[in-house]
Design a protein around this nucleic acid. Structure first.
Lengths: 352, 352
DNA sequence: CTGAAAGCGCTTACAG
DNA sequence: CTGAAAGCGCTTACAG
């Protein structure tokens, strides 16, 4: 008798009206109780709660948002490169944590570096009337988001900056971290340092390449194009290309890999050739088990949790009314020496 | 003049009414065009589209769902253990792919094995009126979801079955996969095989333990409690416990680890002691780089993509009206021999 | 402290 | 093929 409401067909959901009827109060009183307005007679509150519970009443966020002044949907969008890669997944999870604490749900999406998909997903977010968006964009022209911004939806960019749009952004210091890594290799005597990079269209991939170039330039080294391979995306492609470099006439003595899958690919190529004690490598982005390989892999580590928290803090501040000028936050990278980056040049050829 | 609508303050969004006024048609005609109803004069279609585009009109899903007969929000919930772990993230991503193809957005959430959080997040999904839910539950009593089901919201369980609720479920064959793994170790002569397991409250952790027990029983071996460690969650805890086992009087000659973090912890403990060529180990769940360790790690691999696709296919079939009895799908595991599971018993102590 | 009326943006059900 | 009216579930704005 408590669970079953007679005369209701399956598919039925209780509404405020039903709760009001059962509690013998007006709709508006139910609304007050559900929204915890303090000015309701405790006895009525009790009656309404009992009725709501009996009918398993769940408020309809959509209907409430429709009429509300602020129109808030209690939903944000988190649109990243690929939620199945650890960097994106960690960011998503850290944002989720802060969102939940505010009673906000998260609509997640992955772009896979496809600008078309970015348009579709942001458009979908707009139709769902999300309250705000955290985005690691795939495209390079974000003017189209202007309308959403003007409609009051804050955007916080992560990992990659907005182009032709004024918005908050949280970035890793990719260039400095990369430059530092390459200088580190040079300190161990390396001069022929190969660079493996992701798609040139990706902001961070370009930054990491620039860091590599700057480090070479600072040592008066000439950039050698034969040692640079870009537009690599997968372990396999990096493995093939690194292998070709190692098999060439004048191979590199060290690698700097601009992304963790590329690092792994290069490590595979090096090990295939039994060169793991002779060829140095530093990777951008840490990865699980990097410390268990032999030698353990030296990396430039990002801090995705800090990036996510910074971004979510910015977003929620905007939602709470902060209308100060847009800001750009830089999250520093850290350098983790583990062995593979500390193989000196002289080791090359030693016991071949 | 195209981007700016005079007299509109920031925060303004065009509605169908605005589009109708600009296109000089009725609201209903705009609705027809937006919903691609075929019975509209092409000239009016054109006028409406132009007006919608000029005003940057984006339909309001919430308002539309409110009035619609089916009440569909074009949203599903995907609630998993932890979206930042690779198993959950892969499932999420594969579901996302299928959802996008249907124009459905995904609300994601993580339970972290907390039943309280499961209640909060499912309740939140209900208030958002999601059309369906894919869930890897943390709790063991799902009667409370009955109301949502009756309201027409299909639930598909993944990785863990529903309890006290009739719903579709997609599971890995954990028990068989585990039993196979342990028998594999026995084939290499091992008799003292340690088990490392996750929380006993987790369905799959229990199944894997049962598989371990069955394999021992099938060989007439007695289960030795000193070789069993459960309720382990992290790399660190597994590393400590595995280390204690290895340092004990009569240490195991092999490990079966019921989860990838536990496998990694055990591998660390084994390597700390320089025993990697003497102690065998098989892990449940594959992980990136398992093949690059020395020896490479033998695992029972799950197929999260297949689990996700099976679950999403079931869910969307339900949304399309399938009301056949609930089904239980089993996704087989596969065994990947890489070396660590093929270390024979005789190797123990050889060169210590 | 409580409630009746209007309206959020849209679709339904109907009339022309 | 097109449109005016009603209503989805709720909150606002107001009156008592």
């Amino acid at each position: 008798m408590i669970d079953v409401v007679p005369g209701r067909t399956p598919g039925y959901r209780a509404t405020m009206k039903d709760v009001a009827a059962l509690a013998r109060v007006s709709l508006k009183t139910v609304s007050r109780v559900i929204n915890n307005e303090p000015t309701v007679n405790p006895e009525l509150v009790e009656r309404v709660r009992r009725a709501a519970s009996q009918l398993h009443y769940q408020p309809n966020f959509g209907a409430s948002a429709l009429r509300r002044r602020d129109g808030r949907s209690s939903t944000i969008g988190v649109l990243l490169e690929d939620l199945s890669n650890p960097f994106s997944a960690t960011i998503y999870r850290a944002v989720e944590e802060m969102a939940i604490a505010r009673g906000v749900s998260v609509l997640g999406g992955s772009f896979d570096e496809d600008p078309q998909r970015e348009h579709e997903l942001t458009s979908s977010m707009s139709r769902h009337r999300v309250d705000g968006v955290i985005i690691a964009p795939a495209s390079h022209d974000h003017q189209y988001l202007r309308q959403e911004q003007m409609a009051g939806v804050p955007f916080v960019f992560v990992d990659r900056p907005p182009h032709l749009l004024d918005a908050d952004v949280v970035l890793s210091n990719s260039r400095v971290g990369s430059s530092h890594a390459v200088k580190h290799l040079m300190r161990y005597g390396h001069r022929r340092i190969a660079f493996l990079g992701d798609l040139t269209t990706i902001y961070t991939a370009e930054e990491r390449y620039q860091g590599y170039c700057e480090a070479l330039a600072s040592a008066g080294l000439v950039l050698e194009n034969t040692l640079v391979a870009r537009d690599l995306r997968t372990i396999e492609s990096a493995q093939v290309v690194a292998g070709q470099l190692l098999d060439a006439q004048d191979p590199p003595s060290a690698f700097f890999a601009g992304q963790n899958l590329l690092t792994i690919g290069a490590v595979r190529a090096i090990r295939e050739r039994g060169l793991q004690q002779r060829i140095a490598i530093v990777g951008f982005d840490d990865f699980l088990l990097a410390d268990l390989l032999e030698p353990a892999v030296t990396v430039v580590a990002q801090d995705p949790i800090s990036i996510a928290r910074t971004a979510a803090t910015l977003l929620f501040a905007r939602l709470d009314g902060d209308d100060s000028p847009s800001t750009k936050k830089i999250v520093e990278t850290s350098f983790i020496s583990r062995g593979s980056g500390e193989i000196p040049l002289s080791a090359r050829g030693d016991s071949r």
